[in-house]
Computed example of a mutant assay.
Amino acid sequence: MLDSLDTPLRLALVAEDPLARGALSRALSDQGGEGLTLAAAGTLAELESARTEPPDVVLWDVGLRLTGAEGRLEAPDLGAPVLALVPEEAAAELALGAGARGVLFRDAAPGALVAALRAVAQGLAVFEPTLSPVRVAPRASAPPTPPEALTPREREVLALLAEGLSNKAIADRLAISEHTAKFHVNAVLAKLGVQRRTEAVVRAARLGLVTL
């Protein structure tokens, strides 16, 4: 999570469409100047193999077509909050359900996009102003059940997940091997009953285990 608006922003851009990826990269680089470091790729796997530092925020262009017969989306999991660019309201709802922290339409102005990215990186939720409130309102659900108790080490790992650190960065911070860090991360996810790191942080915040 960024400390302030003046902190340099490490941005990961995931966009399958090469034309959209190129246009977004140019617009963000021009708008962000020296305060933004950008890594872009068409897929999550390509980005993970190319990046050297964990990002502060992920910009995810969902494209124009929804995946799967029923229309499903899966947010890229890089251990950082995700801002999704969507073509329509239906995709916005799916992106939020997939774990995105915020959504804007794909034609958002560069200045608004950079401001939204910084807000999401600081732990805020950002929504396209013209979206229907029904689309972005939290769905009613049963009170969350308390998770299985975390060990002291798992609580340390959870706190570092909330900072958006990768497994390698967690290992370096705790002076343990990356393999051990991954083991603890998986244990945290299992005890919180989630599959992705971003979901773990959100659930932990709701349970009062971390502060965003």
Rank of each mutant, 00 (worst) to 15 (best):
M1V: 13
S4K: 08
D6L: 03
P8R: 12
L9D: 06
E16A: 13
P18K: 07
L19V: 15
A20G: 01
R26A: 15
S29A: 15
G33Q: 08
E34S: 12
L38T: 08
A39V: 06
A39E: 13
G42I: 11
G42K: 11
G42C: 05
L44G: 08
L47C: 03
L47K: 07
E53F: 00
P55Y: 04
D56S: 00
V57A: 12
G63A: 01
L64E: 14
L64C: 00
T67Y: 12
E70H: 09
E70Y: 08
R72F: 06
P76D: 08
L85K: 02
P87I: 12
P87H: 14
E88R: 15
A92C: 03
E93F: 04
G99V: 01
R101Y: 10
L104F: 10
F105A: 05
R106G: 08
A115L: 09
A116S: 14
R118T: 14
V120H: 03
Q122E: 13
G123W: 06
A125N: 01
F127V: 01
T130V: 04
S132P: 14
P133T: 11
V134C: 00
R135M: 12
P138T: 08
P138V: 08
P138K: 09
P138R: 14
R139H: 08
S141Q: 11
A142L: 14
P144S: 10
P147N: 12
L150W: 10
E154H: 01
R155S: 11
L161F: 04
D172T: 13
A175V: 13
I176H: 10
S177V: 06
H184C: 05
H184L: 11
V188A: 08
L189P: 01
A190Q: 12
K191Y: 05
L192P: 00
R196G: 04
T198S: 15
V202I: 04
L207S: 06
L209F: 13
T211I: 11
